[in-house]
Design a protein around this nucleic acid. Structure first.
Length: 447
DNA sequence: TCCCCTCACACTTTTGAACGGT
DNA sequence: AACCGTTCAAAAGTGTGAGGGG
């Protein structure tokens, strides 16, 4: 059997490697920034855990983003999906995560559709976009359209911006994908790390009843051992800039990041004395997170791999910490979330599509936009009709859409992904269909 | 025995209907 | 009739801890 590491090395690593750095996608004007980065980082430092339940559980913190650089009058669809960070299953053992075996087979891939979709760029840009209602479940037979995950696995949310007038044109629409490494998390059915529990209680309004200083002190006092309570007090500083009342400025965050990076030097003597995230390039501003692929290296400072030849960042600590961490990470990461540079910068026939501003084709817009969005069908010569070839497959329904059903559209069916449709993978840029199947990009596997 | 999962529970916030005033 | 603000009950979202299954 091929080792996971080997499998991953088979990935053709597309443009997210971005030799030219952020510029490679700066040519596109779309910018996505994460709201409440401080809060996310607070969790990320400890090792974010997200509860998954059968009926579905919201994320906390929930994903909230800001968008800019969209064409105001063009319509866009926003999507979120979750990709596995690595191929392992974990267990919580004595204050740290350990690899306990190979990951379970991928559950049916689901993509959460933002309920406002489709909406003009101006709509998305005028305020932050919240994915509050996104729910995670471990029920593989879920009928509600929640995102299905395996417990004790690591995942990375991905945000997709699709330029499309409606749900049906999504198949041949252009899109761009963004990830934020600090949003990666471990799915659990019950919290493992008490520090995470504490953070959640302190910041989630629904959990107020469990706060020490809350009105419901009786319950907590009886349950929490004195030592735990002491620890909790130590973390009170986090409550002060609570997520609820301090929407942090992202621009400020960019500056702060360098001092406050969870991967900074002081992480070394952090809670676990383990740092697995490459410094340097990853001490990035939020814009640099654009199109970043799932970032296992940046995740889980506490993750401790003892399973086989672990791809754990800790295993390449020695080299990565010197600043080459990024490179080593790239070498083993399926760079699925991105579109090759050559395509990103290439005008495409696919741009010949109706514009929300009028019947003109997109190409009729400002040329600046030709590089803004990644073209789903770019690079395929002779594709003048979107119907001839669609990376999304014409036979697929929109069943994979998650999220509130839109009156305008048929209710989601949430059919399992048909990974066996190689045609949809082909004309794109990644030859390795199998790998795509394992780490599905929404445009291929979820529709 | 251990690990993981499910469930009922008490508590909270959110939502939306109902109502009254302008 | 339309709009706005308030009230209140129901719904939904939390973590906890007991209990069960493998």
């Amino acid at each position: 059997m091929q080792s996971i590491r080997d499998m991953k090395s088979n990935f053709s690593t597309p443009s997210c490697s971005i030799p030219g750095g952020p510029d490679a996608y700066r040519q596109g004007n779309i910018r996505m920034t994460l709201e409440n980065p401080e809060l996310w980082k607070s969790f990320h430092e400890i090792g974010t855990e997200m509860i998954i339940t059968k009926p579905g559980r919201r994320m906390f913190p929930h994903c909230k983003i800001n968008l800019s650089g969209l064409i105001p009058c063009s319509k866009y669809i926003l999507l979120v999906d979750m990709v596995p960070v690595d191929g392992f299953r974990y267990k919580w053992n004595k204050e740290k995560w350990e690899v306990t075996g190979k990951a379970e087979p991928q559950p049916p891939c689901r993509t959460y559709l933002h309920p406002d979709s489709p909406a003009p760029g101006s709509h998305w840009m005028k305020q932050s976009v919240s994915f509050l209602k996104l729910k995670l479940t471990n029920n593989t037979l879920d009928q509600h359209g929640h995102i299905i995950l395996h417990s004790m696995h690591c995942y990375q949310p991905r945000f997709h911006v699709v330029q499309a007038d409606d749900m049906y044109s999504v198949r041949w629409s252009v899109f761009q994908t963004f990830t934020f490494s600090e949003t990666s998390f471990t799915s659990v059915t019950a919290y493992q790390n008490t520090k995470i529990t504490k953070l959640k209680i302190d910041h989630n309004p629904f959990a107020k009843g469990f706060r020490d200083e809350g009105t419901n002190t009786k319950k907590r006092a009886n349950r929490i051992p004195a030592s735990t309570e002491k620890k909790a007090k130590e973390m009170d500083y986090l409550s002060k800039d609570s997520y609820e009342d301090s929407p942090s400025s992202i621009e400020e965050e960019v500056v702060k990041e360098e001092h406050y990076s969870p991967w900074g030097p002081d992480r070394e003597h952090g809670h676990h004395g383990q740092t697995d995230t490459p410094p340097g390039p990853d001490v990035r501003d939020m814009y640099n997170a654009e199109q970043r692929v799932p970032n296992p290296a940046s995740y889980q400072p506490y993750r401790f791999h003892k399973y086989g030849k672990s791809p754990s960042p800790s295993s390449n600590l020695g080299s990565s910490n010197g600043g080459s961490g990024r490179a080593s990470f790239e070498s083993r990461v399926p760079d699925v979330a991105t579109v090759p540079e050559h395509e990103a910068s290439k005008p495409s026939v696919n741009e010949i599509r109706s514009s929300p501003c009028g019947p003109q084709p997109l190409a009729g817009h400002h040329p600046d936009y030709t590089g803004v969005l990644n073209i789903a069908q770019a690079g395929k010569p002779g594709i003048l009709s979107h119907h001839i070839y669609s990376p999304y497959g014409t036979e697929q329904t929109l069943g994979q859409w998650s999220g509130p059903s839109h009156a305008q559209y048929p209710p989601p069916h949430h059919l399992p992904t048909d990974y066996s449709t190689p045609a949809v993978h082909h004309g794109y840029h990644h030859g390795n269909v199998a790998e795509w199947s394992q780490y599905p990009l929404f445009s291929y596997s979820c529709w």
